[in-house]
Amino acid sequence: MQIHCRPLIACALLALPAAASAAEEVVLKVAHSLPPTSAAHTRFIVPWCDKIAAESGNRMKCQIYTAMSLGGTPPQLLQQARDGVSDITWTLPGWTPGRFPISEVFELPYFTADRAASSRALWDFAQADAASEFAGFKPIATWVTGPYVFHFRDKQVKSLEDIKGMKIRAPSRLGNKQLAALGAIPVGMPVPQMPESLSKGVIEGALVPWEVVPPTKTQELTRFHLEADTDRALLASTMVFVMNKKKYDSLPPELKKVIDDNSGRETSAWVSEQFAPADVAAREMTAARGNTVYALTPDEARRWQQASQVVTAEWIKEVKDGQRLYDAAKALVKKYSD
């Protein structure tokens, strides 16, 4: 039906609601579990949000909810994003055991190398072989942490015999298995629960990367810090930054493009690298307190690697097509490392 307007100003007024709707601001609820002082918040999430705001001409902005301020517990972050409680979340797949059984290969002991290279490899692997694990989500970035480090309360562990029977915080299902293979007693828990458990002696040590140390004050709760002096990380966790698929699908094409331009392999590598300075700063801060930062002897390190091999063998056996998936992921790590 054709509408005739007189005077012209009436037509202009009729067009206003449509114009306003087209330029309506989109606010994305972004949720994570750490405090606003954490490296994840300051070095990665805030800059990413600033970037999409700038590239969308401020038509798309983030409202960030730190430290589980939307409610729930860290293992529920993924489900909250799926259900639309949040629009975007940063979380660790290891907090939801069994939810990412294929991409979990990157959490095997002594598997990842340089963090940016391994993060590029994880993105490619997830797109090719683990896309089903992201059903209901628009993946923005997938990456690996820096190397995990053992942080011990009051005992300097120098051998497999020393760690036997110790209660150690583990980050994931495979972290649990690795600790058990080393003779320790794994205690699974998300990072926010770790400081109190260390303080009360519920656990005698914890496995976390260096960047987690300052926001959790781990340097004040532990005295000895064991690093793996190898070209492969003792252990690493995968991390994901994902968006509710329905929310993404609801965006107009030009805003989808902004999200797309800030997603993918290179975004994953960029995110992983934002944690590197925090690792260095945390290590220096810990050493400056007079805490002991050390590595195993080469012979002892080989013993730990050999003891951990059972974890890889079990993973390959229990996952369908495990050997092919392991080989594919390993080849990608090598490709990007080279």
Rank of each mutant, 00 (worst) to 15 (best):
F106L: 07
Q156P: 02
A278I: 06
W123L: 11
V333C: 11
L122K: 11
W143S: 06
L70T: 10
T297L: 12
R120C: 11
V258H: 05
V333Q: 02
A135N: 14
P36M: 11
K334Q: 14
A236C: 11
L14I: 01
T286Y: 03
G165K: 10
G175R: 07
K61Y: 02
P215N: 11
W315H: 12
E318I: 10
A67F: 13
G71Q: 07
I259R: 05
A131H: 07
G136H: 09
V293T: 08
L13G: 00
E254M: 06
Y148T: 08
M194L: 12
M243D: 14
P17C: 06
Y326T: 09
W48P: 09
F241G: 06
M285T: 09
W304C: 05
K256F: 06
K200T: 14
Q219K: 03
T145M: 07
A19C: 10
K138L: 00
V26G: 04
S337N: 15
N58T: 02
T73G: 09
A67D: 15
P190M: 10
L122W: 13
L174I: 14
E107R: 05
A170V: 09
S272D: 03
M1S: 12
L160W: 02
V333N: 08
V208F: 15
V280Y: 00
Q2V: 14
H41W: 08
Y336I: 13
F137D: 05
F275G: 04
E220L: 14
R59M: 14
P35L: 03
P17R: 12
R169T: 10
C62R: 13
V144H: 03
V280L: 07
I52G: 09
D249P: 12
K138I: 04
A307Y: 08
T297H: 03
R223T: 13
R115K: 11
R283H: 06
D124V: 14
S69D: 14
L251K: 08
A81S: 12
A287H: 00
G188K: 01
A18W: 01
K257R: 14
G146L: 05
V191Q: 08
R324W: 00
E55Q: 15
P215K: 12
L221N: 05
A15D: 02
P17N: 09
G57S: 12
A181Y: 07
T222V: 03
A20W: 13
A10F: 01
H151L: 02
R265P: 01
P186D: 00
V208M: 12
F111Q: 09
S132W: 01
T292P: 10
G94I: 03
A126Q: 11
Y248A: 09
V242F: 03
T66R: 09
A23Y: 10
S118N: 09
P171D: 04
L77R: 13
G205A: 04
A206V: 12
V187T: 04
A20G: 01
V280P: 00
S21L: 13
A313L: 10
E266T: 06
L332T: 02
A31P: 00
V242C: 08
